[in-house]
Amino acid sequence: MSEYPQDRLYAGELHMWGNGEWFKRNRKLDAPGDRVKVGFTTFFTGQIPDRGLQVQLPEVGSYVELGDYFGRVSWSQEGDADSYEDWEEGNADPYEEGSDFCAPVDAKIVAVNTELANTPELLIRDPYGEGWLFEMEIHDHKPKSDFNWDADGYAEFIAQDIG
């Protein structure tokens, strides 16, 4: 049994999860109108600090294709400043570290988690619940998708990746 929730699929190298009504139907995105809620896995969120965390989400209504970069998670690296005064005077970039993320499936963005603007720590505290990122709607029959792993398969992928 995996440590990752069983009620969703995972995009391995993207370290994202996807879930929706389609999962109960047949465990794959395959029909126009299917919606997928997307977030990061605990493997990803466990590697980023919550200090100075910011999340840049895509615009609702935008269309993305599999692999398009369209968002970013960034965090501060306090050790990069020579002194606290550097931070106060704006001489250090508090968001030098980050990770761009890309679309796990061809779709239209239909919702974003606006709570992350005020409470980006939700991404780390509750990545499978309140820390979700966005929701997408499929428009093509047989959409291209990176959601190829069930929870156990993703756990094996992680074990091989870090092992």
Rank of each mutant, 00 (worst) to 15 (best):
E96T: 14
G98W: 08
P104Q: 11
E121I: 04
V60M: 09
D50K: 14
E59Y: 03
L53V: 10
A81N: 05
E130P: 00
L122T: 06
D93R: 11
T119W: 00
A155P: 01
G46T: 03
L66Y: 13
G12T: 05
H15T: 01
A159L: 12
Y69P: 00
K37I: 03
R25W: 01
L57D: 02
T41M: 05
V38F: 07
V38Y: 08
Q6E: 15
N118C: 00
G131H: 08
L133H: 08
Q6Y: 05
A92D: 13
E89H: 08
R25M: 01
Q47S: 10
D100R: 01
G61E: 13
F157S: 08
S145I: 02
S83P: 10
A107C: 06
V55I: 13
Y69M: 02
G46D: 08
D68F: 03
F147W: 09
D50R: 08
K142W: 01
L122W: 06
D82E: 13
V112C: 11
E137Y: 07
I158G: 12
E97N: 14
K144H: 05
L29M: 15
W22R: 06
V64G: 07
T119I: 09
P120D: 03
M136A: 15
Y4C: 10
K24D: 15
Y4T: 11
H139I: 00
K144V: 02
S74W: 01
K142Q: 06
E78A: 09
Q77V: 12
N113W: 11
F23W: 15
F40G: 02
K144M: 04
D68N: 14
R27S: 11
E89F: 05
L66S: 06
E135K: 07
S76Q: 13
E135T: 15
M136Q: 01
L9S: 13
W75C: 06
Y128G: 08
V112M: 10
D150S: 13
N148E: 13
Q160H: 14
S62K: 14
L14S: 06
E137I: 05
K144P: 01
E130A: 15
E85I: 14
D80W: 05
D126I: 04
A103G: 07
S83I: 04
G39D: 09
S145E: 00
S74P: 00
S62T: 13
R25E: 14
V105M: 04
S2C: 11
F134R: 02
G129V: 07
W17K: 10
W75V: 02
S2H: 05
N91A: 12
E78W: 11
L66A: 01
D150F: 08
I162F: 03
M16N: 08
G39Q: 13
G20D: 12
Y95N: 14
W132F: 06
Q54N: 07
W75M: 10
L66G: 01
